[in-house]
Amino acid sequence: MIDAVGLVKDYGDVRALAGLDLRVAPGEIYGLLGPNGAGKTTTLRILAALDRPTSGRLMVAGFDPSDDAIEVKKRVGYVAETAILYESLTPREYFEFVASTRRLDRGVVKRASTLADAFDLGSHYDVPIGALSLGTKQKIAIIAAVMHSPPLLLLDEPLNGLDAKSGRILKEVVSLHARGGGGVVFSSHIMEVAEAMCTRIGIVNEGRVVAEGTMEELRALSGRRDSSLEELFLKLTEEEGFVAETIGRLREDASRGP
């Protein structure tokens, strides 16, 4: 589904991606983990054909996003870091717009409506999106991203703002999608979620995948059998020592009192 080799992305002097490799097969749920500014959002934007890589080879769902952005966008459901919506449209109008521009058939109304009920959106259909809460906007973005049943889901911190119930539903949607043969890439900062859901995890640091594999493989890589993903993550991003030191200093400050 995804085949990326040596992706580089420069923003002016900033190198956001420095040779990132990524391969995702159908039926896989791939978790992108990494510290802030590691390049997760940049990667997902490039996969969704919203940005072009400065260099590198890339195929998404059988197309090169640089040449066939539209073909890629047809096959991808993308949920951005912060929901990208027309704030002056109502959710109903927005769904109508998305379904129409994607040329979907009438069946989509049923599908969207099932999801909307699951997310408990019922009383918000005719309120301008700008007036809705963070989590409600996120739900709308998610429904809009999956309503065309794309083969590939790209989710950038999709649990952002969702309450526990909705988070549970989203996880179900994602694993059903993978079981049906679709591919999923999502970024997250919540280790437990990644640990519980992903079939494979990639740890990104400074624009590169520094470690990759199933939970077991990652554990083996770090040489510690019982460690949690969080510990692994800190070790692999070489922030273990920094965190220990910082925590020590914070505790010292706290013991001195306010």
């Binding site: 009438r106 989509v108 409506s113 009383s123 309120v127």
Partner: peptide, 22 residues
Amino acid sequence: SHAAKTGLKFRIHGPLFAYVLK
């Protein structure tokens, strides 16, 4: 105060028409 719950129904148009409407 948000309205009572309603069902989600919407129409589907051609892309250009939907775009102009938007």
